[in-house]
């Protein structure tokens, strides 16, 4: 697959799988207002995923639609960051995952505004506004939970310890990233680290949370090598669509 297409798919799949995870919350959140809030974030991410998948389909040039790409690819063909496929856990774990991704997506979309690919720059211009709100929402909750009660503090600190090792992947530049950066299409993965670290550290301080030590093992979801969780996500997401080949809905 050409790097340009793979790169767009990485961003698309990360939004798609995170939207899918957030969709599991709707109707089960800690307060009605949070049902609405999580649904809004999920809708924004789905919107991004649809635009990006359609674009990836065009780049690929095999006539595949957003749905073909979402519903008919195998697990190893999904290029999302491993972090977003992690289970929701409790609300604290969902907030931590969301915050780490929001801060990363904001860096990414801000830099993509300068992309030499006008389509990506256009999508980023829309997504950056949405992502600023997502970060505001997740950071607000991270601070409340980190600072709130002993229990809430322990829960989010625990979630952070659990999810932190999965952030390494977001900043490790591989062959695809290098080519993309050289072509001026997008930032190298490592270029997102300074801005992300600064954002994350500021909120951790307010939330009284300690950043764990980075683990030496790095995940490679963006190369199609996933944790055990993605298979289940896809089995559920794709089941109906695959049961009726060629049907329209």
């Amino acid at each position: 697959m050409m790097p340009h297409c793979a790169y767009v798919l990485r961003i698309a799949d990360t939004s798609l799988i995170l939207a899918q995870r957030l969709g599991e919350w709707v109707g089960h959140a800690p307060a009605i207002e949070e049902d609405l809030g999580l649904a809004n974030v999920s809708l924004d991410l789905l919107g991004q995923a649809r635009m990006l998948l359609s674009y990836a389909g065009e780049l690929e040039g095999r006539g595949r639609s957003e749905d073909d790409l979402a519903y008919l690819r195998e697990e190893s063909e999904f290029l999302n960051a491993t972090l977003v496929e992690q289970p929701n856990g409790d609300f604290g774990q969902t907030v931590v995952r969301q915050f780490l991704v929001d801060a990363w997506q904001l860096e990414l979309y801000e830099q993509l505004l300068e992309s030499k690919d006008p389509r990506l720059a256009e999508i980023a211009a829309k997504a950056v506004k949405e992502t600023r709100y997502h970060l505001r929402y997740s950071a607000g909750w991270l601070v409340r939970l980190g600072d709130g009660t002993d229990e809430s503090h322990a829960r989010v600190q625990d979630a952070l310890t659990r999810l932190w090792p999965l952030t390494g992947e977001l900043f490790s530049t591989d062959e695809v990233d290098r080519e993309i950066a050289q072509a001026g299409i997008g930032p190298a993965a490592e270029a997102l680290l300074p801005g992300w670290s600064a954002r994350v550290a500021a909120v951790f301080a307010e939330a009284r949370l300690a950043a764990p030590v980075m683990s030496p093992f790095s995940w490679h979801g963006k190369q199609g090598r996933h944790s055990e969780h993605l298979g289940f996500v896809l089995a559920e997401m794709q089941s109906l669509h695959r049961a009726h080949p060629g049907a329209t809905w």
Binding site: L16, Q20, G23, E24, V26, G27, I32, E33, D35, L36, A39, N40, S42, L43, L46, G47, A49, R50, L53, E66, D67, A70, Y71, E236, M237, S239, L240, H241, H244, A247, W249
Partner: peptide, 26 residues
């Protein structure tokens, strides 16, 4: 059915719809 909606458009519509129900409750 949110997680199993058969197309991304249907998923989008369904999330917005179920979200509205929550809003109406509120």
């Amino acid at each position: 059915w949110i997680t199993r909606a058969p197309s991304l458009l249907r998923k989008t519509i369904l999330i917005a719809k179920v979200q509205d129900e929550g809003g109406h409750g509120a």
